[in-house]
Design a protein around this nucleic acid. Structure first.
Lengths: 227, 227
DNA sequence: AATCTGTATATTTTCGAAGATTGTTGTTGT
DNA sequence: ACAACAACAATCTTCGAAAATATACAGATT
């Protein structure tokens, strides 16, 4: 693996997991020290991430972590629902035994980790399995483009989901695993009329949590403009 | 404007307009001479284009123009229809006078160029105005993500449309401008039940032309694999 | 004849320094 | 005290060369 690929994966991981504050500048000298490499591979990675909207860049003024905003989240969520609903519909039509088995396996692995709730260190593992479960649902849709858009929107919204994850271990938690089970059952039964609304409701409920969190503790509040 | 941006725009233009054959290697030494710059800005541009799926890259084996395939075209078309139908629906709901005026202006400019058919040099101008018209239809959807996906899918499918453009000046041409007029009228009347099927039909008809062309003269035929 | 091996060439990838631009600080003049 | 201006510092951007790797070719071996 080249350094540029390492830089891409490392930067994406660190941005998506919130290691860099949204809006903060990504100075090349700092990054070169952090990741132990020169400017070239870092700039290549930053350009890729710019194309994916995880970082912003301004000519001769360098790169920044893309800022967070409620509007962008709502936008990304609506687009996600559009893509995922169609991809799930197609998967239910086209998916064979392999697809069904993948869904069952992903759900099982997810629930194993969810039952293990407690240690906060495993939170990212839970997130990874949650994502893997949703990917498994769409895997048979047959559209590379839809799957890629799904991945991109996942990365773009992951930073917003950190509070949801943290809340999911706390008290008064809604039974997310029951939602997953119901969704998987409907999908495996090819019951479009049940599965699609369940998917929609699943995301909208997470969105409510995020809206509350962003409203009380806005991550990217007032932004100064030069006078 | 930095050299890296020039490289990005130049490469994208040349790839999308078919100046490089699909699948052909993009050697840095050649590109450096063609665009008159060093490796660094070129590699940054190629990484951006890689994230947009216009070029492929393999570790330590460099970059290539992304190959063309009927399957990818069908996939991109289906995804386009999904996104554009929803974006048009939203635009019709949210769009105000500015949006309507923009649609009328784009349609008018498009038809001016279409009537001017003859000189093949203006073919790309026709393509640009065609794209501008479809963008104008979606402009009021309020979703940055949908608009960006629209742009990306446009670039990804533009290479396939070259034969359609060439055919559009020939004999036996279907009346594309009438389709545009009808689509614009329905959109401005906020007639969802008419506009969405028109949009769908418009794209599917272009797709038919492309399928025929690809079937008779496959751009990316047999691909050798090493034994 | 076919396959392996070692050498030479071509190409990508990375670094370190030089060039270019922006922002800051300190100075001067009114 | 305030505005204009010049030198300075920080940072991004680009180049050219060096390092690492893959490809092509020729010769040796089975």
């Amino acid at each position: 693996m080249t350094l540029a690929e390492k830089a891409y994966l490392g930067l994406r991981h660190d941005i998506v997991h919130g290691a860099f504050a949204p809006g903060s500048p990504l100075r090349l000298a700092d990054l070169a020290e952090r990741y132990g490499m020169g400017f070239s591979p870092l700039r290549e990675a930053l350009n890729r991430l710019g194309a994916e909207r995880l970082v912003t860049s301004e000519t001769l003024r360098g790169f920044r972590v893309a800022p967070l905003s409620l509007a962008e989240f709502e936008d990304a969520l609506a687009t996600r629902l559009l893509i995922e609903a169609e991809a799930l519909r197609l998967s239910m039509i086209k998916g064979g035994d392999d697809w069904a088995a993948g869904v069952v396996a992903a759900l099982y692995a997810l629930q194993l980790q969810a039952d293990r709730k407690g240690t906060g260190a495993d939170l990212w593992e839970l997130e990874a399995r949650h994502h893997a479960f949703h990917l498994a649902l769409l895997a048979a849709c047959g559209s590379e483009w839809m799957l890629e858009i799904f991945e991109r929107l996942h990365h773009a919204t992951q930073r917003y989901r950190v509070p949801v994850l943290l809340a999911s271990t706390g008290p008064g938690t809604r039974d997310i695993q029951a939602e997953h089970k119901a969704l998987a059952d409907a999908a495996l039964a090819r019951d479009e009329a049940t599965a699609l609304p369940l998917l929609r409701a699943h995301y909208l409920r997470s969105a409510d949590t995020i809206r509350e969190t962003l409203a009380t503790a806005p991550a990217a509040p007032a932004k100064r403009r030069r006078a």
